[in-house]
């Protein structure tokens, strides 16, 4: 049988998935052990024990200075910023994206602008964001929105434009108004695409969240990482990175499950990643 037709069983599929993870862990352990053998206080590649105890300390022991449980405080604040930012970006994508995709005049007016705006790296206009939104939460949320909304608008508009023309003509023949077509036809057809674009936008959203928190902040996952980097506390940074990865993974899976439950028709053609 050709290799493209041979499918792994459930067990060997799980095993195959585990191999690269195990390989990374093993390589890390070897390198870490070598460095620690030479300098037991080495900070660059800490042992799993010291990372574990650092994680425990951040999560379950109150901070000496403020009495807060830092990991949960950072996680909560970061997720809050991420959530607000993504909510605004999604709302923008939905409203502007639908209009651009469905109404030719709006498309002519806004599509080139959005396309241009989406190419500006938001980090480069940070000082302007500061002046407009201040240095508080608003600027951090604005950075996330500026970094994700334009691309989401474009992909939503694209999703609207790929709705089969026949369906729209059918609705018009049945006497639907523009509003009825928007709410009963275009919106339901676009929503699974929107969820998909949220999933894709979460990647840059995390990057912008972390960089926003690095710039001016008192809490947050990105804040903590950039703070302890000042004394090379990799025993705190690495668990935080794993934690962020885990959070991002869970969010991604959650959106996929929602999409599958709410729009089973969208997932009819085979597997998706």
């Amino acid at each position: 049988m050709r290799i493209i037709n041979r499918r792994p069983s459930r067990f060997s599929g799980f095993f195959l998935a585990a191999i690269p993870f195990i390989a990374v862990v093993v390589v890390y352990m070897i390198a870490s052990r070598q460095r620690l053998a030479e300098n037991p206080a080495d900070k660059l590649l800490p042992s799993f024990q010291s990372m574990g105890s650092a994680f425990w300390r951040m999560a379950f022991e109150p901070d000496r200075r403020s009495g807060d449980y830092l990991l949960w405080l950072d996680t909560l604040d970061s997720l809050w910023r991420l959530g607000i930012g993504m909510a605004i970006a999604t709302a923008l994508a939905l409203v502007i994206g639908l209009l651009i995709g469905f109404i030719p005049h709006v498309r002519s007016a806004l599509a080139p602008f959005v396309a241009t705006f989406s190419l500006i790296p938001p980090i480069t206009i940070l000082p302007i964001l500061f002046i407009v939104f201040g240095l508080g939460e608003a600027a951090k949320v604005a950075l996330i929105v500026a970094g994700t909304a334009p691309v989401m608008i474009r992909s939503t508009a694209q999703a609207v434009m790929t709705i089969p023309r026949e369906m729209i003509i059918k609705a018009e023949t049945l006497g639907a108004s523009v509003w009825q077509m928007l709410t009963r036809l275009v919106l339901p057809q676009t929503l699974p695409g929107l969820i998909n674009s949220i999933r894709l936008a979460l990647v840059p959203a995390w990057i912008f969240l972390i960089s926003a928190e690095a710039i001016a902040s008192t809490t947050g996952l990105g804040y903590r990482i950039f703070l302890v980097r000042r004394y090379l506390a990799m025993d705190v940074i690495l668990p935080y990175v794993i934690w962020i990865t885990l959070l991002a993974f869970i969010l991604d899976r959650l959106l996929l499950v929602i999409s599958r439950r709410a729009f089973p028709w969208f997932h009819l053609n085979g597997e998706s990643l």
Binding site: L126, F130, G134, L135, I215, A216, T218, L227
Partner: peptide, 20 residues
């Protein structure tokens, strides 16, 4: 006081905002 961690690269821009 409340210490707000701010990157040195953005210090001048930060200072020109009213919050700081």
């Amino acid at each position: 006081v409340t210490v707000v961690n701010t990157s040195d690269a953005d210090m001048v821009a930060a200072y020109s905002t009213p919050d700081v």
